[in-house]
Design a protein around this nucleic acid. Structure first.
Lengths: 215, 215
DNA sequence: GTCTATACTTTGATAGAC
DNA sequence: GTCTATCAAAGTATAGAC
């Protein structure tokens, strides 16, 4: 039957009536993923060993291979979840904006949602940290997830530009990268002990939409 | 006599009249450093082996230990040179600005110099890439170099704020981090095939000082 | 599903000849 | 200064018992 490694094939021994009952395998797999995100975030890609991850979930390193084929498959899952979660969260926030809102309002909401989402997710923290450390093939595959989210922002900005909301000298493509990079940079230095995410979001919004200088 | 590992003790066998004649050791040490920066930048901290570095300079891995005590001493040198070079370059550019210049002009110059310097230096590229991967003690020591440069920017911005050039709602401390992070982010995605550094600098200047939205 | 045992590989670093 | 030889440690991954 070979159910191994096939996340939802484990529906066999289901006893409850929920359409998506979680098997023990599902649960372990999930716990491993969460722990991996945590540890990759702390120690980086090469710095994290399968033994580390195993210890964190109370399993032997060898047992992890029942859930993930390799360390690389594991980190790829972390990476992808990192950006997909943020993308979903921002899309939802923007979708909730009334049609009547201005371009600036819409983009402000998106900025805010991105920052909050990113700072609140171990997966995106982890993804940012290890992205540059991961083997090339993984990075290449993962890039598709980033690009999809990047496209979303491109549309947001293109609409604003068409509506005449943006400065005319601006290269929209560059602006998109600038925005996302600036927001993500918070992952490198933000410490919850200082400013609240709320205050941070307000300042970033100011920096990005209005700039630093007055008049 | 034990001259080993003491960079300038090698002045013993000097034959030329230059006050700083380079011994063979100096030359090798330098070549190793440059190669290391290159390779660390490509493969990251744990991804780079002493064998890799040795191969790049035509030495055996073991021979590197004549010039650097350890892999960590080597990467720390790369890290420090990365930020020190940029700092020196930006300080020089700002020093050359006429006293009569406005705060905005001064800061524009600094932005420009930082971006150019960072994109032109293998050391700063490498430093950015590996900073998050390096053992904690190294990172901690290295942080002093960053902080020194950060202070320079703080003064620049504080002056501008005092002069009333900045928007009053702005948190200067946060603005400093925002600026440096945004500029450095170019290291992650800039490709020489696209826009020129010139164009890039102009756009960044616009984004940061004036913001994205018109009026 | 998870364990124990272990094969295999790679790495940072040292010793000592030249 | 650089080489050859080598070691000890650590890591990924597999095999097979339970």
């Amino acid at each position: 039957m070979s159910l191994v490694h096939t996340k939802n094939a484990a529906t066999t021994s289901r006893r409850r009536r929920q359409p998506e009952a979680e098997t023990k395998a599902d649960i372990s797999r999930e716990r491993v993923l969460v722990a991996a995100a945590q540890i990759f975030n702390e120690k980086g890609y090469s710095g994290t060993t399968m033994r580390d991850v195993g210890r964190a979930v109370g399993l032997q390193a060898a047992s992890l291979y029942y859930h993930y084929r390799s360390k690389d498959e594991l980190i790829e899952a972390v990476l992808d979840k990192g950006v997909d979660d943020v993308a979903a969260s921002v899309r939802a926030a923007v979708k909730a904006v009334p049609e009547t809102a201005s371009h600036k309002e819409r983009i402000s909401i998106a900025l805010d949602a991105h920052l909050r989402s990113v700072l609140g997710s171990t997966f995106s923290m982890s993804a940012r940290r290890v992205f540059g450390q991961v083997p090339e093939p993984i990075r290449r595959r993962h890039l598709k997830h980033r690009d999809a989210y990047g496209e979303f922002w491109m549309n947001l900005l293109r609409d604003a530009a068409k509506g005449g909301a943006l400065r005319s000298e601006i290269d929209v493509r560059l602006a998109r990268i600038f925005i996302i990079s600036a927001l993500n940079s918070a992952l490198d230095w933000y410490k919850p002990e200082g400013k609240s995410v709320d205050q941070l979001a307000k300042q970033f919004n100011l920096f990005i939409t209005d700039g630093l200088f007055s008049s």
